[in-house]
Structures are given as structure tokens and as C-alpha cells.
Design a protein around this nucleic acid. Sequence first.
DNA 1: ACCTGAACACCGTTCAAGT
DNA 2: ACCTGAACACCGTTCAAGT
Lengths: 236, 236
Amino acid sequence: MSSASTPPGARAAATTRGRPPKLDQARTVEVALALLDEAGLDALTMRRLAEAMDVRAGALYRYFATKHELLTAMAEALLADCLERPLPSPDWSERLAELAHRMRAALLSRRDGARVYAGTHSTGRHTLGFADTLIGVLREADFAPDDAARAALTLVNFTLGHTLEEQAALQVAGDGPADPERLRDAVTAAQYPHLAVTLPVLTSTDFTAHFAFGLRLLIDGLRAAGPGPAAPGTGG
Amino acid sequence: MSSASTPPGARAAATTRGRPPKLDQARTVEVALALLDEAGLDALTMRRLAEAMDVRAGALYRYFATKHELLTAMAEALLADCLERPLPSPDWSERLAELAHRMRAALLSRRDGARVYAGTHSTGRHTLGFADTLIGVLREADFAPDDAARAALTLVNFTLGHTLEEQAALQVAGDGPADPERLRDAVTAAQYPHLAVTLPVLTSTDFTAHFAFGLRLLIDGLRAAGPGPAAPGTGG
DNA sequence: ACCTGAACACCGTTCAAGT
DNA sequence: ACCTGAACACCGTTCAAGT
């Protein structure tokens, strides 16, 4: 049940004396994720979270030493469902794609999920289990350990970068002109011939297609490299 | 000289009467980037920046409507040098790799540069010029417009995701145990066979090699797809 | 036109004191 | 053991008033 690193006040009372605590780590993370969904990361403050849990802000610090530690536990919780179902296909490239899609879905499942994840470095079981599975798929496909690890990092970094942009584009819309509109204006104002031609794709909101394209590129590149001994350096 | 969108107070005084302003957009961005390098993004506050410019915080709001607008101008400035030198090779894959390396170098050039860039969406000339050039390289290699645009997005998102992680790993080191150490402990404590085997690569600080690997994957994937009409959907 | 002074409505975090 | 109350040292942003 425990999240990221060893929780400071998580050891249960030796004897269950006194009234039960109003707070605990798991419930705090749950409420924090709900508040994240409602209000967004910028509005997720320790005070607002405390209010949502009917407690004063200071009380949260018995369970999380810093706000960053809470965010790390939230990031860890985001990946909770990634390995629930078994991977459907025996083909390594389909397994890889499936894992990447699940990670994207996990980050998308909450507002600003990608930003939360990008800002933290959990070493919890969901995060490490996901990475282990990813590398395992590649190793079982006979990729050399170094290549498997680097390919996994690439996949995760691409997924993170993509989802960060996807979620950033998804919202806004409240105040100023939305992103695509500003891009359209800027492109027509100055001379960007290639942006002008590709504007429909660049402003498309079919992020699933964008993601699938990039993912295919990576997997095709991996297929081209092919399983076997470690790839040579950048030399030749 | 102007950055991102139309600057509010940027129109020069009709007649140069009165003492010259202590502030202007360009110099503010310069000082902000210097402060970023010294103190990091979390310590880059409007008050601290104002202090560095010998002015009260409120004065900054004549040049930037919000802190986010200042950060956008900073992100735009980060990419300033990406297109200064001409691309050395006529080969499209080498041109692409060169551009990606330049973007990474630009983000790395300042502390938390990737975080600044990830948090904003500039439509300034450096950002758009870079994207236009990227897509141009692919179009000139006879990739279909849609593929060229999507490949460019993939390249940028991977570079952003990678550099975000690289810069996050680079620092810390001040307070708690560094990232690699926590990872090592977590991996040995629980059962992550594939992480255990690849720990040396995963904790390696040769981020240039990691980046080159991912970049090669993308470019090889692009070569496999090959120039020509737009690639088919995810169908088969 | 450009900046100051001062305020408004917040933050994350700490810690004695209560129960 | 767990939480409150109250404070500390800050934030971004606004705006009348000065020059």
C-alpha cells in the first residue's frame, strides 16, 4: 500500500488507542488526485488539499515531508493500472506499443497528469514495475541489455514529451486565444512555407494519431537495429 | 527584436522625452535567463528578478502581462542560436540529427531550460523558424506533408522529454540521496530482474549517448517508412 | 511614460500547544 | 499520536500616486 519512499509517519500505532487518525497517505493521495482533476496542478495547494480533507495544512506534513513528496506519491499512483491486465500479444513490438499506450492513457487519466509525472521521480513499485516490464519485453526479444534499457528510456521520454504537449494543448481555451489560433495567425503573418503547408496536421487534435505515428517510428527503428549484440556507438 | 506575441508596452515613445526607461523586454529576458542559471526555475520569482534589475516587482508588468508571458519570451530566447550556423550535410538524416542535437543543446544551455520550454508555447520566430526548418528538411527529402509534420512533432517531443529527464537528473545532488542511489536501493530491495541487469546503463550519466540512441531509432524508423505518399493509418 | 509604495489574496513549511 | 493555531518568510498581481 505504501507509495514512493519510506513514509515518515506510516508505521501503524502499536496498540490502536485513541481516536483513529483523520488522515493517511493513501486517502490523501486519492483526494489530491481528485482535486487535481477538478482544479488543475496550479490550484493544487497544500491548503486547498487540507481543506478538502477537513484538516489544517500543517497536518499534511505528518504524512508527506514536502509537497514534492506528495506529488511523487501521486505520480506513482497514476501508473497503478498499467500492468493490471496481461499483455495481449506475444509479439514484442505489439507488447511495446501496448505498454506505451497504457502509459499515455495513465498520464491522460488525470488533468495535468503528465506535468505531475514529469516533475517527480518515483521509485515506487508501479513506476519501477513498468520500467522492468518494458525492458523485459525487449530482453526477451533478444535485444542486448544496453539497447533494451536505452530503447525503454527513449520510449518513456517520447511518451512523456508527447503527453505533456497533448495535455497542454487540450486545456487553456479559457482565457486568451487557444494555441492553434495563435499558431495560425503567426504562420500567416510571417514566412513559414513548410508550417503553412502542414498547418492542418500541426493544429489537428487527433493526438492519438500523432502518438501512434511516433511510436511506430521508434518501433520500426528498433526493428531495423534488430535484436542481437549491443549496437555500435555513434561512430559508423 | 520583439519576442513572443505583441508586447504591451513595447511601442517606443513618439518623442524621446523624459529619462530613458530602466527596463525593456530584451534586457529583462537576458537578466531573467542569467538568474535562471544562477538560482533555478523555482527561485526565479518576479520579485527576485525585479531586485536584480534594481526595480520594484510591479514595474515588470509594464513589459510582461504575466509571469507566464515572461517565461514564454525566455523559452523563445533559448532557441535563438539553433539556426545560426548552416546545416553542414546535404543528407536529410544528418540534417535532422543536427537539428535535434541543437535543440537539446539549446535547452541544456541554461539551468532548467527544458522545464521552461515545456511550460510555454512560444509562437516567436525562433520557435517557428526551427519547426519550419525541421519540416522543410523532411519535405525536401520527399516525405509527404503529413508525415513530415508528424515526424517533426515526434522529434521535438522526444528531445523535450529526454532533456527534461537529463536536466532533472543532472541537479538535485544537494539535499537527499541522488536519483541513481535511490534507484539502486529500490532495485536491490525488490525483485526487478531486468532493472537489475541494466542498472549500469540506467544510472549512466552519458546522456549524450542515450540521446543519440533514441535519435537513431527515430531516424531509422523514418528511413524504414521511407519518403513517398502519406503513410497509412494504424490499420495495417 | 515609467516607476514606486502599498496593498490584496494567497503560498509552503514549522512548531509549540492542545487533546 | 495526531491535529490545531498561529506564525514566518515568502509569492503573483494590481493600482493609485508620484515624477
